[in-house]
Amino acid sequence: MIHSIFTQLLQTLLIVGLAPLLVGWVNQCRAWLQNKSGAGVLQPYRVLHKLFNKDAVLADGASPLFRLAPYVQFGCMALVGTIVPVLATDLPFAAAADVIALVGLFALARLFAALAAMDVGTAFGSMGARREMLVACLAEPALLMVFFTPSLIAQSTSLPTIVETLAHREFVLYPSLAFAAIAFYMVSLAENARIPVDNPTTHLELTMIHEAMILEYSARHLALIEWASAIKLMNYSVIGISLFLPWGIVEAEGWLLIPVALAALFAKLLAGGAALALLETLSAKMRIFRAPEFLGTAFLLAVLGMLIRLALEK
């Protein structure tokens, strides 16, 4: 019991605390790939610290909803971080949600973000809200189909069970899982406002999606939103890890295994972050109405994965 509470606390702190580091690592890798020196992996922390110290400026018409939204987003993301098995599957909080409920939690955060973006009543804010909701609508069916395949293999949608099933067995090649993994990667790019669906570093208002929603935020509110989106990226990474690369996550009580799990996690995150940076360097942002095709492809891959699972791997 103490063990599980300890791992629970440790992993929550880990996800919330290290999320900006992951973003910093991705940015640093991208800078290297683009022959720049980069601001260092700790830059997101500096930015957050600076933002927290500033005085918040609120637009004249902003309602209390506008001020509430950053806290809701941050709270939702932190809660997801406590539920996903990152270091160990034996978590007291993990039963609170399966992977579908986690998607619901992401959607709750998104709803508040979109509503807050419409609150001030500027042209860009509502445009961002509309686009964000659109991308999310198209991403969710694909995401569900992605979850079908691992949950068919494990006969469960609960993440600890999936991890235990997939990591425990003898090594089996699942083509279906490979398909699902690619589809998941595509969907998480869209959900996390990365290239090719959105560009997190853009300065062109008309091409913005996520950035357009947070134009009116400043200081601590902005810091919370930035931090929340960093945690979101982290959460998607660890969900992906537990669905498709679960090796190394501790399954029983064992203090000694935790450092191993930590090392495995770091290695996977470093590799994943570098891969993300590489992809973002190689590709360009799509027009917004190409996004349905992109997500349609993800959907197709996920469905094929599921069908192959049903037909081939009995």
């Binding site: 089996v172 090649l173 083509p175 279906s176 490979a178 398909f179 197709l300 891959l301 094929l304 192959i308 081939l312 791997e313």
Partner: peptide, 15 residues
């Protein structure tokens, strides 16, 4: 399993 994987790839290329 490898053959299955290649078969899946074939299907993917067809799409």
């Amino acid at each position: 399993q490898l053959i299955n994987l290649l078969a899946a790839l074939l299907l993917l290329i067809a799409f």
